[in-house]
Design a binder for these strands. Sequence first.
DNA 1: TCAAGTCACTTGCAAAATGCAAGTGACAAT
DNA 2: ATTGTCACTTGCATTTTGCAAGTGACTTGA
Lengths: 124, 124
Amino acid sequence: MLGDRWSLLIIRDMMLLGSRTFKEFLGSYEGIATNILADRLRKLEAHGIIHTERDPSDGRKLIYLLTKKGIDLAPVLTEMVLWAGRHEKTENRALIRLMQKDKGKFLAQIRQRWVQSKAWPTAH
Amino acid sequence: MLGDRWSLLIIRDMMLLGSRTFKEFLGSYEGIATNILADRLRKLEAHGIIHTERDPSDGRKLIYLLTKKGIDLAPVLTEMVLWAGRHEKTENRALIRLMQKDKGKFLAQIRQRWVQSKAWPTAH
DNA sequence: TCAAGTCACTTGCAAAATGCAAGTGACAAT
DNA sequence: ATTGTCACTTGCATTTTGCAAGTGACTTGA
């Protein structure tokens, strides 16, 4: 299931960047085509990794959220980011330092954000 | 790089099953085509994740080994196996219990096997 | 020593997945 | 009422994959 170019990136963006809408996914990494994104979201939902809700304040928007199964991918994603930080060119040095400093605390924070009534702290 | 169907499976088989030759990779999971396997091995080597040596005792064989960078994927693979064990149908319950019991020890054992002059304990 | 494997591939071609541009339909904002 | 936004779908070209059938270097057994 996760063995394709985009699925793990989508989950990473939900988990680490807080992306929740179709448009946000399109923006966060250039390059994914809309049909492929739609297909991957459909498949992730079919596998119970994400689920979908309509935005109550804007009927056009759908909000994609991680399920328990999806949140449980946090350790996988974390180890991947750490590995890439060690062996590949990468931005996000700050995030990596945070992960290295206290992995357990970092994971707890991620889980916490989803427990708190699906709210994600946004800047704007 | 790892965002395709086969690359992580190849690394998993090297790490967890001790697969080292082309033929072993073909056998360990049915389904990968020889041209795709050759291509993935080439790319993994180009990315410094594996390296290749000729078998001194049999000139036909090539032996594929993990580099440091490749071994460092052990935590990623471990978390993936644990996740799959929790959320997907899976065999290998024994391995998963071993990982759960002491993750640190398990990872240390994997690293140890590669430090010891590339030898892998085989049954036959 | 030589025919018959074995091993790690390559090649050619069909089928499937992907990428791109241009829609579409429901809803929102002005 | 018109224009814009959002989450898609559709059609088609390109790329990647899968399958079957080689190939060449090397080994094995008679």
